[in-house]
Design a protein around this nucleic acid. Sequence first.
DNA 1: CTCTTTTACTTGACGCGACAACTATTGCCC
DNA 2: GGGCAATAGTTGTCGCGTCAAGTAAAAGAG
Lengths: 161, 161
Amino acid sequence: MEARTSALQREIQQTKPFQTLGQEALLGLLRTTDIVQRRLAKIMAPAGITQQQYNVLRILRGAGADGLPTLAIADRMVERTPGVTRLIDRLAAKDLVTRTRATDDRRRVDCCITEGGLAVLASLDDTLGAFDGEVLGMLEADEQLKLIELLDRVRQGLTPT
Amino acid sequence: MEARTSALQREIQQTKPFQTLGQEALLGLLRTTDIVQRRLAKIMAPAGITQQQYNVLRILRGAGADGLPTLAIADRMVERTPGVTRLIDRLAAKDLVTRTRATDDRRRVDCCITEGGLAVLASLDDTLGAFDGEVLGMLEADEQLKLIELLDRVRQGLTPT
DNA sequence: CTCTTTTACTTGACGCGACAACTATTGCCC
DNA sequence: GGGCAATAGTTGTCGCGTCAAGTAAAAGAG
């Protein structure tokens, strides 16, 4: 491998060069996402919700009027149950979702987004739309496709375990 | 843009297709990193440290015997001070780092990695090396470079704010 | 028709990140 | 050299993730 100037290396003030490309790619991935997440957090903050709460609201909006049981939400988030329970505790406290014990199976708790929840989502649509335009604005359409494909492949090599 | 089958869409059981490529790329980025982080957490767990603690230890190892003041560590982590203080509280509790009030400027607290800390890092080297090989194993060298480049560009378009 | 297992959550304890407010020094200005 | 700002950290509160344990209801086994 020939010498390359690494943008990442400058960014993290690292003196030693990366030993492998894989190392650099991995760190680049972690760092890029970190930056994106901080921006997302700032976008959500005015609406009084966090990224995870937004995620849950989106899932519930998609689920429609019937709502979804807690575990089904957790499934779609790759997330452990305890977290989701408490996440929804807080959303319920803000009246953005309702929880009702299912009558046909009393173990289940169906969660449903409220009008207020829908309004919060709506209030974020524009800003978020603009944001993902901004994030990927640096890349041409074919590059965006390439990025999507590369990330897909990385995940495929990783999903087990 | 012609119709594409989206791997991501299947993964998150989403019924509606993505409205823009940017949206899909962004979500792919978040999701890929999420998976990587979970794997990393599992690798670190046996050593009794978290990713952030590992990060701090790496930085201190690079800093050598003189150590680094708390804020300098925070700098290299893109992280807020309060977090770092408490992070180091826990590392110090495990005797992986020492903290000494600097004599020439009594506001400063210099942090230094201990033998124990170095041993913990050493115990993780192999597994981590294998891991980044695995993560990027799906990609050819030129694809890894492409990924690195695309991520660099995304960060560049984002760094302000 | 009980007894055990599985399923669907809930609760508790701990580590981490974020913001805000506070303390302790040092440096600077005049 | 007395006062004020900047610097370096610490502490408190809150949301979130993780694991481990516990509860409650439904399903299956004999």
